[in-house]
């Protein structure tokens, strides 16, 4: 890291090799690769959803009410005769973007707070941590429900509520990492050559704290997707007729006796996505964990 200040050319190969090393390690882990592939496929499907969906997801068809899965309708049709496969495809856009955006926003804000607390220490640290203590004294799901009561339901509001819930954990984690990394000699060195505080944090501390944050964020996306669909399920998140997976479940649960496929497929979609994210997160942790590095 020191070299990067003086010899610009040496920076690139070193960074690349670290990235490549992690990728290499990851590619050797079969579960992680499977998770990654599932995720990539899902993301591509979500992006292309409006073009590849076999039917219009809002189009109702009385003739096909509660139609069982068949060659025409892969996952069957719902209570209004809408094609469930098309709805799940479009719904993946809501669920994935909700999970990714909320985690991203929460992580960035959380890291900023954690960095300030971890770097300055002392009183600043104390105040920040005590505020986090208070926020975390409210169980996560309860906090989400209060937030959605305050903000009202809807896609954007759900993202805000979920992001808010991600902040304390991320802040705590970065702070803990920083306290560890701060003791290193290269930090002392950068202080001694009079680097600005901002630069020490951004160039030296944060990059060296990133590994656990990346793992945590990957797992966080999975967690957020589940929570988001849970919120929609109880009617406080994304509202029907938007085909968010949780909202789909919430709308069709009353038909569980007569047409179970209405409930099975959206849930499977959530489970597969979360499973893929967890598999990848586990793999990333193994690849990034310095304890296993040899």
């Amino acid at each position: 890291m020191m070299a990067e200040a003086s010899v610009q050319t040496r920076k690139k190969p070193r960074k690349n090799s670290e990235f490549l090393r992690v990728m290499k390690q990851l590619s050797r882990n079969k579960t992680a690769v499977i998770g990654l592939i599932i995720l990539l496929v899902e993301i591509v499907l979500a992006i292309l959803a409006p073009y590849i969906a076999p039917y219009d997801y809002t189009q109702m068809d009385i003739m096909n009410m509660f139609a069982k899965p068949s060659a025409q309708h892969w996952f069957g049709c719902d209570d209004l005769g809408r094609d469930i496969f098309s709805r799940i495809l479009i719904g993946s856009r809501y669920s994935l973007s909700c999970g990714i955006l909320a985690t991203l926003i929460g992580t960035v804000i959380g890291m900023a707070i954690g960095a300030v607390a971890g770097f300055f220490g002392g009183k600043t640290d104390n105040i920040v941590m005590r505020i986090l203590d208070v926020i975390q004294a409210i169980p996560g799901m309860v906090m989400m429900i209060v937030m959605s009561a305050v903000l009202g339901p809807g896609f954007i509001n759900t993202i805000i509520a979920l992001a808010f819930g991600t902040i304390p954990g991320m802040a705590r984690m970065l702070r803990a990492q920083m306290l560890k990394v701060r003791e290193n000699e290269y930090i002392e060195a950068s202080v001694s050559i009079n680097c600005s505080k901002f630069r020490i944090i951004m160039d030296h501390l944060i990059p060296n704290c990133m590994s656990p944050m990346i793992v945590q964020a990957t797992m966080g996306v999975a967690q957020t997707i589940t929570t988001a669909s849970g919120l929609s399920f109880i009617g406080l998140g994304v509202q029907p007729p938007a085909p968010e997976w949780g909202a789909m479940l919430s709308g069709s649960r009353q038909f569980i006796r007569q047409a179970p496929h209405l409930v099975i497929f959206p849930g499977l979609a959530i489970a597969v996505t979360v499973l893929a994210l967890n598999m990848m997160g586990d793999g990333l942790r193994d690849a990034l964990d310095p304890k296993l590095k040899n």
Binding site: T226, L249, V263, P266, G267, I270, A271, V274, L275, N278
Partner: peptide, 8 residues
């Protein structure tokens, strides 16, 4: 861990 519990 992956299965959302309300769906389960």
């Amino acid at each position: 861990v992956a299965i959302p519990n309300f769906w389960l």
